[in-house]
Design a protein around this nucleic acid. Structure first.
Lengths: 172, 172
DNA sequence: GATATTAAGTTCCTTTTAGGAACTTAAATA
DNA sequence: TATTTAAGTTCCTAAAAGGAACTTAATATC
């Protein structure tokens, strides 16, 4: 059974992974954030095969993460540009990059860091509560399930629920 | 050419993706955060084939994201528990989940949200500067390259640099 | 104390996806 | 007009994933 056939339509994380949860796709997005726009740019920078790139770009356009914009006086050459929805993925890439910086390299040997333009200090990703205007540590985060999952919880046993969702909505 | 053969040893994001940048791996981590510990738990919850699960767990243990802890009076049954390094991936999963919540569902139809325990409001991922004690918007973030990439910049043309790295370290 | 069941993998086979290189077609450049 | 470039497509091979049955030791049950 492929996971996409699973009933995890109710997990935003799984849904997101269904769109961008792929090595090449995330590297394509990285390069897009760094300025790449054209098919051959992505292909040469990343060294992936052309038909895989075709496939991934198509998928990203279908999901409105890239928009395909013609350039020049042509109708057959295009730039792939991040949409607002695509640009909103930057916290994902930053979280991945920051983790790599912190856990895969020695301090002082980090090859590339995200820093605060003003002071030069390294940034870290954190959860922020707009309501309270504070950053929230993981012990103060609660996962709240919506009405659909609540309904399932009432009608299914814990095991059936897990089977249906592909995950356990709450820690045991 | 497989991307892992690329010389992107100098990109923390690419390095991280080499470890966890895989659909199943990230779903395994999701379920680990929600309490799954044992081989068959992961297998039944996710529905992935057993040898793929074996492979992914092995890789995660090798990279010190899970530790394999025997349980019972046995030396052949194990729990896979997140290490500190593994637990530090939670911003990655939250960033993915938050993006999905915001961009793949209508408000009020989000199946599951990350909320602030105290006030119940939904959280968002943001970059935080420990030095200035403020959250930093993307326009105030600067990517700074370390000494190794700076050396490459001096000895290679932009195109050679891109070939060597697999990406352009700065926007054009 | 024998029997059945569970847990954690392995093995084998088939299907799908990815890698590699050459080919196509139209557009921009020389 | 001839050449190169851009954006794919096509074809073939290699690697990875899906599916199901099999193994081996450890618990649990009778």
């Amino acid at each position: 059974m492929k996971h996409s056939e699973h009933n995890d339509k109710l997990c935003p994380l799984a849904q997101t992974l269904g769109i961008v949860g792929d090595n090449w796709t995330l590297l394509i997005l990285r390069n897009a954030f760094l300025g790449a726009r054209r098919f051959d740019d992505f292909q040469q920078q990343l060294g992936l095969t052309r038909h895989v790139l075709t496939d991934r770009l198509k998928k990203l356009v279908e999901h409105d993460i890239f928009k395909k914009v013609p350039y020049g006086a042509s109708n057959s050459r295009f730039e792939y540009r991040l949409t607002q929805k695509g640009a909103a993925l930057s916290p994902v890439l930053m979280a991945l990059g920051s983790w790599g910086n912190q856990w895969l390299f020695e301090k002082e040997q980090q090859p590339m860091r995200y820093t605060h333009k003003t002071c030069g200090a390294e940034l870290q990703m954190t959860a922020y509560c707009t309501c309270c205007d504070i950053n929230v540590s993981s012990s103060d985060i609660k996962m709240v399930t919506g009405p659909e999952i609540e309904t399932l919880k009432k009608s299914l046993s814990p095991q059936q629920l897990t089977q249906a969702l592909g995950f356990m909505p709450q820690s045991p």
